[in-house]
C-alpha cells in the first residue's frame, strides 16, 4: 500500500519537475533568427559573437589582385573562375606597392615612404594610390605586406558561392592577401537570393582598366 501511494507521489512529482523545466524554457527568449528579414544579428540575445578568423563569405579586393591564379588552382571545388590577359611586355598596371594591415582590421594600400620594414615606435607615412598621405604610428599597424606589380588585366574573376566549401585555402595562398573571408555577421553570411545564379559573385571590374586599355590600344595603333 505504501509503495502504491509512493508511486502516485512519484508520478505526480516527476511530472511537475518536468513541467517546471518546460515552463522555464517557455519564458526564455527564442534563439531563432528570422534570417532573410532580420539582419541585426548583433541585437539578438543568447547569440555569441562570431570569433575572429571565422570563414565567412569570400571577398576579393580586386584592385590588389595580381591575377596569379594560385587561388583558382588550389580551389578543391573549382568555384573560382578567372580570365586574365597579359599586358604588353614591360608595361604594368601599377608598380609594387605595400598593403598596410591595421589592427582595427582595415587596410591602406600605398607606397611607404622610407623603410618598408615595420619598426616599433616610429611613424609610418603612406602615400596612397589616390594621392593622399596618411601618417600612422606603428602601434596601429598589424603587418605590412608587399603587393607585387600588376602585369595582368583581370577580365573575369567569378566566385560561385554556392560551390564554395569555405576551406580557406585560397585565402592562404593569396600572395597579396586581397582574397579574404569576411568574418563579421552583417556581411559574412548574407546569402539569401531568389535565383541561384545570383550566388555567382563577379569581382572583376573591367572598367578599372579602361583607361589603360585605351592607352595601350592607342600605343598599339601607333605601332
Amino acid at each position: 500500500m505504501r509503495q502504491y501511494l509512493a508511486n502516485i507521489y512519484l508520478g505526480v512529482y516527476t511530472a511537475l519537475v518536468g513541467m517546471r523545466i518546460t515552463f522555464k524554457q517557455l519564458l526564455q527568449p527564442s534563439v531563432t533568427h528570422q534570417y532573410p528579414y532580420e539582419h541585426s544579428f548583433e541585437k539578438k540575445k543568447n547569440v555569441r559573437d562570431i570569433p575572429k578568423g571565422y570563414r565567412g563569405k569570400l571577398d576579393n579586393r580586386i584592385e590588389d589582385c595580381i591575377g596569379c591564379r594560385k587561388c583558382e588552382i588550389i580551389c578543391p571545388v573549382d568555384c573560382i573562375t578567372m580570365t586574365t590577359r597579359k599586358l604588353p611586355k614591360g608595361e604594368r598596371l601599377w608598380d609594387s606597392m605595400s598593403v598596410v594591415h591595421l589592427k582595427d582590421r582595415t587596410e591602406i594600400v600605398g607606397n611607404i615612404e622610407g623603410d618598408e620594414k615595420l619598426v616599433p615606435d616610429t611613424t609610418i607615412t603612406i602615400k596612397t594610390r589616390d594621392e593622399r598621405t596618411v601618417s600612422l604610428s606603428s602601434e596601429e599597424v598589424d603587418r605590412i605586406v608587399e603587393r607585387k606589380p600588376v602585369i595582368f588585366y583581370l577580365d573575369q574573376f567569378d566566385i560561385d558561392m554556392s560551390l564554395c566549401m569555405y576551406c580557406g585555402l585560397c585565402t592562404e595562398v593569396c600572395p597579396t592577401e586581397c582574397l579574404t573571408m569576411i568574418d563579421n555577421l552583417k556581411d559574412g553570411i548574407a546569402y539569401s537570393t531568389f535565383d541561384r545564379t545570383d550566388l555567382i559573385y563577379l569581382f572583376a571590374a573591367p572598367e578599372m582598366y579602361d583607361q589603360q586599355t585605351e592607352a595601350s590600344d592607342e600605343a598599339e595603333a601607333a605601332d
Binding site: 501511494l5 509512493a6 507521489y9 512519484l10 512529482y13 516527476t14 519537475v17 518536468g18 523545466i21 522555464k24 524554457q25 526564455q28 534563439v31 543568447n46
Partner: peptide, 22 residues
C-alpha cells in the same frame, strides 16, 4: 502530509536537471 511522508525518499532519487546550455 503527502510531501512529508514521501518527499524525503523521492528527493534522493536522481531528478533530471535543466540543461545549462542556452
Amino acid at each position: 502530509g503527502v510531501f512529508a511522508v514521501f518527499g524525503k525518499g523521492v528527493s534522493k532519487a536522481p531528478v533530471p536537471q535543466a540543461s545549462s546550455a542556452s
